[in-house]
Design a binder for these strands. Structure first.
Lengths: 351, 351
DNA sequence: CGCAAAGTTGAATGCGTATTCAAGGGGCGG
DNA sequence: CCGCCCCTTGAATACGCATTCAACTTTGCG
């Protein structure tokens, strides 16, 4: 009701009411510090009476730890990364930490975001699907702020990262296609500069090469990591029988595989997997359901998030920055209806 | 490479290098403060040399403004709210502000999140689809922290809020159904305690009543605001011809409308809109596409976000907390294929 | 009972910045 | 040439809390 500007009671206010020193109040709210139980109770009671809440900003200033972790997101159009964001939030909240969320325009660099992050003295930075200059890496490095790249790495840098074993995942899809009898292929790339897309494509092509498929039998399309990009690429490339349809199309991520399926269905009246088989990557919720039923490589989000936070070493009082730790977590092939199952396998339903 | 604990150069370091006082450095980084241009340049240069970045934590302590806004999310399973989150992030980033993101378990209360928020001295709180006790409202109130409820309100409270005109939206869907010739109806509710779901349902029922449809001709199902909930509710309710199918089903939000469509198709082989027509609410991206093509009420996210931030009055140096401002933004009916178009209208394609 | 060790407590200090206050300098009009 | 006002500047202080240090109290054990 009043327009008071004070943001609330301070530890000194509580101290005065409880008849103790400000130090005692601080200790009452710092687990593990030495304080008589009886006094602690008295302080807590006084605090409640004043609606006292410790000021984390002030605390951060002295402890030099903000308990804030920054998560920087590129490509928010891909539901996968929103799922990743949620996983980070849940886990960090469980640890009593907060998440400062940033987005950077798709394909843009994250330098500005990093600069903002530095101002807020965050305890760590998670970077997904965004470019990061090596200058920024070393800036964080110098200030003792650990950075973990999520599903991305900077070749030649010593930045740490966690990623799905993308190349192996690409191989898994290739194997599935081969087992289902495909002999001609297309793949829809995401961000051409992104290592994630490159690695998946490489694994895919390598496996096919091993099976004797010539590189020329594999068409490359650009889908820019988004649904519409894939939809349009497929629509354009196969319009009017301009190009011959392959037996199988690999969407470098699920959202593009979905775009491809819809383009085939709506533009050309083609059915998946009867006319063309489709494989994806990520295992996003939307792709599990009708009508997509994507056969895909599941990225174990929880495991990846856990490992990323491990690398951050948030609990270390002083954290020596290790030279880049690079963790790869294997993906798992999930069989659904978008690729016909070979004899030896049975498709599972929607997971 | 070193394990230095210092988090970087301070304004005093820069001052020493530039041969000025710490005050001057502070002024150099505070737009609008009085400082000779030549000196400002010298300071900026020294700062660059030291990789100095102002410490926002320390700044917040003296200015009593953190430039942080908290966004609390319930129901992250609904893509709509992730879209909302992104809109807030983008807009706030553009203002030089940061977003602290919290999630609360679906249907849970947000009291704990609010308490965390208070510790961080955020400049404002946005709360979406989560319960909030009036005690917490007044706690924020007392501390001068503005709270805006997004698509939610607390009856009898003076908390501010922005929401879509939900009742009117429900009416729009009812009108569309009626225009298409429907006479029997079902609706799938979301969170039974949520005002959003209640309001949409009320508008829907009211409009039907005006058209002479008895309440008993409207079946109520519980979908708990999630895809699976709606899918299961429809599957169960109409199993084995247990209940007669209505002409039209209103999913209180798109994600449930989608679940309903899939249940009808997969469980009963029914086609939309030929066998049953379906209406939704929100206009999420997934519902625009094949195979859903949802006719729905679009919530103008950008407008709503803008208004929500207006109410926050982030720029006011001292912000008197107004008694609850309650803004309602009208939704717009988007015609797609899930409801047959009456003569006078033409459906648009995927938007 | 005595002494050392452990446990408690408060005063004082520092974290990095913004801001106030008073002092100094320069320009301008009279 | 003088006086006034505005612009610029640095010293000092406050922001709210954690932590160190020294003083004091209690416990434990011989």
């Amino acid at each position: 009701m009043s327009t008071r500007q004070r943001s609330g009671a301070t530890s000194s206010d509580v101290a005065a009411l409880a008849g103790v020193s400000q130090s005692a109040v601080s200790r009452a709210f710092t687990p593990g510090s030495s304080l008589a139980e009886e006094k602690r109770l008295r302080i807590v009671e006084a605090a409640k009476k004043l609606n006292y809440v410790p000021n984390s900003i002030a605390r951060s200033l002295t402890t030099r730890r903000s308990n804030i972790v920054a998560v920087i997101l590129g490509n928010t159009a891909n539901p996968f990364y929103l799922q990743v964001l949620e996983a980070f939030i849940l886990r960090l909240q469980g640890q009593g930490r907060q998440v400062l969320t940033f987005t950077v325009p798709n394909g843009g660099d994250s330098d500005e975001a990093i600069l903002r992050v530095l101002r807020y003295q965050v305890d760590g930075v998670i970077l997904t699907s965004a470019q990061l200059s090596t200058r920024m890496v070393s800036l964080c490095h110098d200030r003792g702020i650990p950075v973990v790249l999520f599903n991305r790495y900077i070749p030649g840098s010593d930045a740490s990262g966690v990623r799905c074993a993308n190349a192996e995942g690409g191989r898994l899809i290739a194997e599935a296609f081969l087992a289902a009898g495909a002999r001609t292929f297309a793949m829809i790339h995401g961000d051409p500069k992104g290592t994630t897309s490159q690695d998946r494509a490489r694994g895919f092509v390598d496996k096919l090469a091993e099976a004797g498929i010539a590189r020329s039998a594999i068409t490359s399309l650009e889908g820019h990591s988004v649904y519409d990009g894939a939809f349009n690429a497929v629509s354009r490339h196969y319009r009017d029988g301009k190009a011959k349809l392959p037996d199988a199309i690999f969407g470098i991520n699920d959202i593009m595989a979905m775009g491809a399926i819809d383009a085939l269905g709506q533009r050309f009246g083609l059915k998946v997997p009867d006319d063309v088989m489709i494989g994806g990557f990520d295992d996003i919720a939307e792709g599990r359901r009708f009508p997509y039923r994507l056969t895909t490589v599941r990225q174990p989000i929880d495991t990846m998030v856990e490992k990323a936070l491990d690398i951050l070493h948030l609990d270390e009082p002083l954290r020596p920055i290790q030279p880049g730790i690079d963790v790869q977590v294997p993906g798992r092939l999930i069989w659904r209806q978008s690729i016909p199952a070979p004899r030896s396998r049975t498709p599972d339903g929607a997971a």
